[in-house]
Amino acid sequence: MVSRIAGAVLRAVLMVVLISTPSMLLPGTHSDTTQIVALVAIAAAVFTFAEYNSAYPSLVEFRDAPPFNRIRFVALFVCVLSLSLIARGGTDASTLARFIEAVGQNLSETIDFPYSPVRLMVLMLPQDADLGLISSVRTAAGVSYLVSVLSLAVFVVLMRVNNWPSSKSGFNVWVNMPTFDPTAGGDIVDRLQRDSQVNLILGFLLPFIIPAAVKLASDVIDPISLSEPHTLIWTVTAWAFLPASLIMRGIAMGRVAQLIEDKRRRTVSDQSLQLA
């Protein structure tokens, strides 16, 4: 009980740090922005504490199957921190900020080819955007894309090395996948495999769909202004993190489907041996 509360408090504090990082690092943050960030951070902390302190599932998936959510959080935090340091470098450049910016520029120039996700992010900008804004968006896209790809690679490696999500206590589908109803009808393995494929396809397409959707919507509504550092950080982070999260979820659901299928196969084999 005590360890559960302590873990929930720690996760809630980490959520506050994550959401508050841009406001703490960027100079000249407006007081209204600070108040909004504080409100969002408190709401996220309360939600996180309630989710991890409860014995019953609600919304957070793979809650008891580390390091799924840990990798996602670290990737999100690294992305937000890196983009915040780059934005801060415009007024207070540091060695770390310059290094991250240089990596982002080199990477963005490498993957900024026609129809690439980074090129689409740049094309999302207004036609009269200045070169400084274009460079900032391209660099931020390169850094966030690198972080998302590395997070996927780390998850796949750990899944193979540690045989995730197998553990001594077993894998509880109800606790770790509260939004998935195994009794909704149809074979659970087929449904998991179908949902896995849907998540993988969406995760692959979203980096291309999001900039195109924003560009089309800008003809109807006022487009978002990426010249504001906070908007740039969170927009580019969402653009890179959501697809990576969906792909990771698709891989995880496919792995769970494989475990259930293997369990069924062993059960049938044991029954055949008993009958023999």
Rank of each mutant, 00 (worst) to 15 (best):
V60D: 09
Y52E: 05
S269Y: 00
D92R: 15
F73E: 09
A102E: 15
S148W: 05
M124K: 03
D128P: 02
I5F: 06
Q193S: 14
T183R: 15
I42S: 05
A217D: 07
A55E: 10
P182D: 12
A129K: 02
D112R: 12
K263P: 00
M1D: 12
G186V: 05
I260Q: 10
P243E: 13
S136G: 06
I36R: 11
M159Y: 06
V161H: 14
I188S: 07
L133F: 04
L85E: 02
R160W: 10
F99M: 14
G7M: 04
V198H: 06
A87P: 04
A44C: 08
V268Y: 06
E109G: 15
L81G: 04
M253N: 06
R4Y: 02
A6G: 11
V37A: 07
L133W: 03
V198E: 08
K215C: 00
F208M: 09
W234S: 00
V13M: 11
G170N: 08
N69Y: 01
L146W: 05
F47R: 06
S20N: 10
R72Y: 03
P182Q: 13
L96Y: 02
V189T: 14
D128C: 04
E109L: 15
S196F: 09
V118E: 03
S151L: 04
Y52R: 05
R63G: 02
P126Y: 09
V2L: 14
I100T: 09
S166H: 08
L59P: 00
L226G: 02
V16T: 10
L14S: 11
V13N: 04
A213F: 10
A55L: 11
V118W: 05
V143Q: 03
R194L: 13
I201H: 12
R160Y: 12
I5K: 01
E61F: 05
V40L: 06
S225L: 08
V103C: 15
M124I: 00
S169D: 14
Q35W: 13
M248T: 12
L83W: 05
M124Q: 08
E261K: 07
A276W: 01
I260E: 13
S167K: 15
L83F: 03
Y52M: 04
P114G: 03
N69S: 01
P27Y: 01
L81H: 03
G142F: 10
L96Q: 07
